[in-house]
Amino acid sequence: MSKTHHKDSDRIIKLVHEYLGENSDKTILDEVADHMNGCPDCYIYINSVKQTIQLMKKVNQVKELPSEVEFRLYKSLKIKR
């Protein structure tokens, strides 16, 4: 942990987790932004969490339904493709 990691960091991270993705008021956003400006560890940490979420959105997704899965789907529904 770098010397710039503040005592306040755990509280800020708690705030970020509380509000990440939820609407939060400007006071909280400003406080988080101010803290991150002076705390490289928090900056990297919070961005890495955001990045993790973005990357995970791309996991386990097929671009197209496999043809054999589609065949079984229509068969089970008794509908012609």
């Binding site: 996991v59 386990n60 997704q61 097929v62 671009k63 197209e64 339904l65 899965v69 589609e70 789907l73 229509y74 529904l77 509908i79 012609k80 493709r81």
Partner: peptide, 19 residues
Amino acid sequence: ALSNLIHEHSTNVYNTGLK
């Protein structure tokens, strides 16, 4: 029409289950 609707949405439904 039913078949077309199923075709249109099947990949997203499958991905939801997979995730």
